[in-house]
Design a protein around this nucleic acid. Structure first.
Lengths: 175, 175
DNA sequence: TATTGTTATACTCTATAACTATA
DNA sequence: TATAGTTATAGAGTATAACAATA
C-alpha cells in the first residue's frame, strides 16, 4: 500500500500496455460506423441503447433506466423527448407514484429497434474485421462480462477512492 | 447493397448487441482508474500514450507521431509542450528539415514511463476484474489486434463512406 | 426531508481552420 | 504550392446544480 508493488509482470506487459489506446480505437470506430448506420434514429447509438433496454428489459422508471445504462437522468430527459416525438416510445404515468414515468416502446419503436439491431450487428462485424469470427464472439462476450462486473461492482459509485488504495499515491515524475 | 441483408444472426445476437455499451463502460472505467493512477504525469493517459510511443518506437517527426496515435497534430502540440516542461521529453531539431521536430525521451522520461506502466498494468487488472487472468490476456490481445487492423485499414481515412456501401442507406424509422 | 423528472448553466474535449516557417 | 508545427475558435458532449411536483 505504501510502495509500488514490485509484482512480476508477464514479458509482454513489461514494455507497456496500449490496451487503453486500443480500446479507444475500437470504440471510436464503432461509434463512427454505428452512428452512420443509425442515421434517422434520434440520438443514434444513445437512442439505440435506450430503446434496446426499453424493449428487452422491464425497467419500472426513468431513474431505473438511467441507472441501468449508467447515464445521467438529465441526459435521459431530452433523448426520451426525441424518441417520443419520433413515435418510438411513450411515457406512461404510474397511478401509484405520480412522480414516476414508465417508458414503453410502441410497435413502431420495436420495429425500429429490430432494424437497428441488424444494422449494428453488421457494423460491429466490420469494426472487428481484424478478428476471426470466433475471436469476435469471444471479444464481445468478454466485453459484456467485464462491463457487467464493473456495473455490478459499483452501480453509481465513484471508483477513484477505491483505486487510490490499490495503486497508492506515490510520486509520478521521478527526479 | 440495396436491401437490408437478411443474413442469419446467431441466436445470442438476435436480441440486440450491447457491445458498444459494454466497450464504453470498460473504457470509461479504464479512464477513471488510469487518470487517477497517473496523476502528476502531464495529460494523464494521453501523455502516457505519447510517452510510450516516443520511448518504445522510433518515430521521426511530430506528424508521424500524431499519425501513429491517430490524434490531431494540434493536440500533440500542447501535450508535448507540457511533457517537455516536465522534463520528460525534448524537441530535437532535424538539420535536414528545419520544419521538423524529433521527439525524444529524457532519462527522466523513461523512468516516468516505467513507473506509469506498472501503475497502468495494475489499474487494468482491476478494470477487468470480471474476467479470469486468461480471459484478460485474450481480451487485451484481441483489442490490440482489432485496433491495429483498424489503424492499418484506414490510417487517417474517413470510414463513413466505406460503411455506407456495406450497410445501405435504407429507412431507419418504419411507418 | 427525500425522490422523480425537468431545465439551465458551465466545463471539457475535440474538430476545424487560420497562421508561420520552411521545403 | 505543399508540408511541419503552432495558435485560436467554435461545436458537441458531459457534468453539475437549481427547480417543481410528489412522496
Amino acid at each position: 500500500m505504501s510502495d509500488i508493488d514490485p509484482c512480476d509482470l508477464p514479458a509482454d506487459r513489461q514494455r507497456g500496455s496500449n490496451f487503453g489506446w486500443s480500446l479507444g480505437m475500437v470504440l471510436r470506430r464503432w461509434h463512427e460506423y454505428v452512428e452512420e448506420a443509425l442515421k434517422g434514429l434520434p440520438h443514434g447509438s444513445r437512442g439505440y441503447h435506450i430503446l434496446a433496454v426499453v424493449v428487452h428489459e422491464d425497467v419500472p422508471t426513468q431513474a431505473a433506466l438511467a441507472s441501468r445504462l449508467v447515464i445521467d437522468r438529465s441526459v435521459l430527459t431530452y433523448v426520451i423527448d426525441d424518441l417520443e416525438n419520433a413515435g418510438l416510445i411513450e411515457r406512461q404515468l404510474d397511478p401509484r407514484d405520480r412522480r414516476a414515468r414508465r417508458i414503453v416502446a410502441t410497435e413502431r419503436g420495436r420495429q425500429a429497434l429490430a432494424d437497428a439491431e441488424k444494422r449494428v450487428a453488421h457494423a460491429e462485424d466490420h469494426v472487428l474485421a481484424g478478428l476471426s469470427e470466433e475471436q469476435r464472439a469471444t471479444f464481445r462476450d468478454s466485453a459484456n462480462r467485464a462491463a457487467e462486473a464493473i456495473h455490478a461492482a459499483a452501480p453509481g459509485t465513484d471508483p477513484c477512492a477505491a483505486v487510490t488504495s490499490v495503486i497508492g499515491p506515490t510520486e509520478q515524475v521521478p527526479g
